[in-house]
Amino acid sequence: MTVIDAHALAGKGISWAEPQREVNYDPAELVERSIAAGIDRVCIVSPRSADYPAANQYISNVCSRQPERLIGIAVHHPQREAGRIRQMLDAEVKSLGLRAVRSDGHPTRELLDAASELQIPVIYYPNRKRGAGPGRWYHMIASTYPHVRFILPHLGEYCSETWWGHMEALDLVRRYPNIYLDTGGIGSLKYLELAAKELPPERILFASFAPELDMRVGVESIRLLHLSPERHAAIMGENMLKLLRNS
């Protein structure tokens, strides 16, 4: 079984999580912790940044030093970088070896056209008002771009801030075959149990959101589901491997 963490963080910037703060996630420490937690490969993404081209270059450099351990993911801000995303992303995938893109803001046609052409997954966690679920933000993009594979982090609700955010995420997966959920940063495990019980197992991706959160907790969350070895292996890495293979 190859264990792949689908969503971790590396580099300097502003935390994705609220309340925001300055962060500097050390990739060497991340790799060390991943080995201790029994994780073979880690997908890393930059924290929020005012300069994503530089942040993505950094991620690429880090990955090129440990390609057997790290997989790089680009980040772009669809509105702030409008008009330049297609060209940047093309170079980041083809030359820098990045394998997916995280959208810092609601994805535009420009970003999704580029992702579609490059056949890379799009990671998108809607930045919505407190108390609103992710559903509204996904229906249009998932139906308009059925060939783009979307990864919705945190089972739709970081730290389980609302229970209905998780329920909306589960419903989205049922409706759209191109939406996947990652398992990092879930506070209430019962919604992950629901997902494992009700959703096709190939649509759930193990993630830790380390080093913001502890990788060991992420691994234990999946173990506690008591899945069959096949399902467990699929969630822990095979599903992400397939997504990346197609990119």
């Binding site: 506070g187 495990l189 019962k190 502890d214 060991r216 907790v217 234990e220 506690l224």
Partner: peptide, 15 residues
């Protein structure tokens, strides 16, 4: 409990 799983919460102490 039961909104939060005691098995994971005790793991957070054990680790």
């Amino acid at each position: 409990e039961p909104e939060v799983d005691c098995r994971l919460e005790i793991f957070k102490i054990r680790m």
